[in-house]
């Protein structure tokens, strides 16, 4: 009976308290606001890591506090010198090294590989059904959205901002390109941007000279007015206009989307 038992009991107690705290955090959504299937994958992975890492965090922090409380001399006193000290403890080393290897292998299998498999599967033909294709063009400093299936080349709000509007629960394929259609002498003289909707839980860089894809399904009717995380935001520094390279976004019902397409067509045709 001694430090080992006290420490083990405290570790268990505080780990349980920590796990209860995790449940509260998870209930309130640690990523604040997530409304896409991709974002759900990220959120689940985040929560899993949070739950598994809590006992590790508690172990080290408890140890540091325990050291300060139990393993210290009084001020000005020297530690005792008449002892023999262990410099090895095979069981402890085995548990520590084996445990950290096991934990990391676990993390690599789940959530790392399992979530990536689900993400990669979205561009397989079975899932990639082209229900809605949105061409996203990033230029310094603007997002331009076009809907080739509906003949819309640039969708705007009434006051001229570029607007991304998506129907809820429809898989979207974003086609991401970085070039400047207005610089006809050198369209590709642009830089790396990053297409990020915080509420969708994913970002992909948009690279000049490359065409990249992102697949997701919005899962709730929402908009920038509902939550400011529902916005398109450039996440990679792209020059002085970077802070304002953002666009409002609205996720709407199918009917509203159809109406919106009509209205945009009318707007485009003058």
């Amino acid at each position: 009976m001694g430090e080992n038992v006290v420490f083990a009991v405290l570790w268990v107690v505080f780990s349980v308290l920590g796990e209860i705290g995790d449940r509260v955090i998870i209930r309130h959504n640690p990523m604040y606001y997530i409304v896409s299937n991709q974002g759900q994958l990220a959120l689940q992975a985040f929560n899993f890591l949070l739950v598994v890492l809590t006992p590790v965090f508690v172990f080290v922090v408890l140890f540091l506090v325990f050291t300060m409380v139990r393993f210290t001399t009084k001020r000005g006193e020297m530690p005792p010198a008449n002892k023999r000290f262990a410099i090895d403890n095979k069981a402890f080393v085995l548990v520590w090294v084996g445990g950290s290897i096991a934990l990391n292998l676990l993390f690599f299998l789940h959530p790392t590989t399992s979530a990536m498999e689900q993400m990669f599967a979205l561009d397989q033909p079975a899932a990639n059904t082209h229900d809605l294709v949105v061409d996203v063009t990033a230029r310094q400093w603007q997002w331009i959205f076009s809907y080739p299936q509906y003949g819309l080349t640039q969708t705007l709000t009434p006051n001229g901002q570029n607007l991304l509007e998506l129907p809820v629960n429809v898989p979207v394929k974003f086609v991401l390109r970085s070039y400047d259609p207005y610089h006809t002498y050198d369209q590709y003289a642009d830089v790396i941007h990053s297409f990020w909707v915080p509420a969708f839980g994913i970002k992909e860089d948009v690279i000049p000279g490359e065409t990249r894809y992102e697949y997701l399904t919005p899962t709730a009717i929402t908009s920038y007015a509902v939550n400011p995380m529902v916005r398109v935001q450039c996440a990679e520094v792209c020059g002085p206009g970077h802070p304002w390279m953002e666009s409002p976004l609205a996720v709407v019902s199918d009917q509203q989307f159809a109406q919106w397409v009509k209205a945009q067509k009318a707007l485009a045709n003058g």
Binding site: A42, A45, F107, P111, T112, A115, M119, S194, G201
Partner: peptide
């Protein structure tokens, strides 16, 4: 280090 989480947290 977890890529799916990284895609959300990267550059934040």
């Amino acid at each position: 280090a977890d890529p799916i989480v990284n895609l959300q947290l990267h550059d934040t």
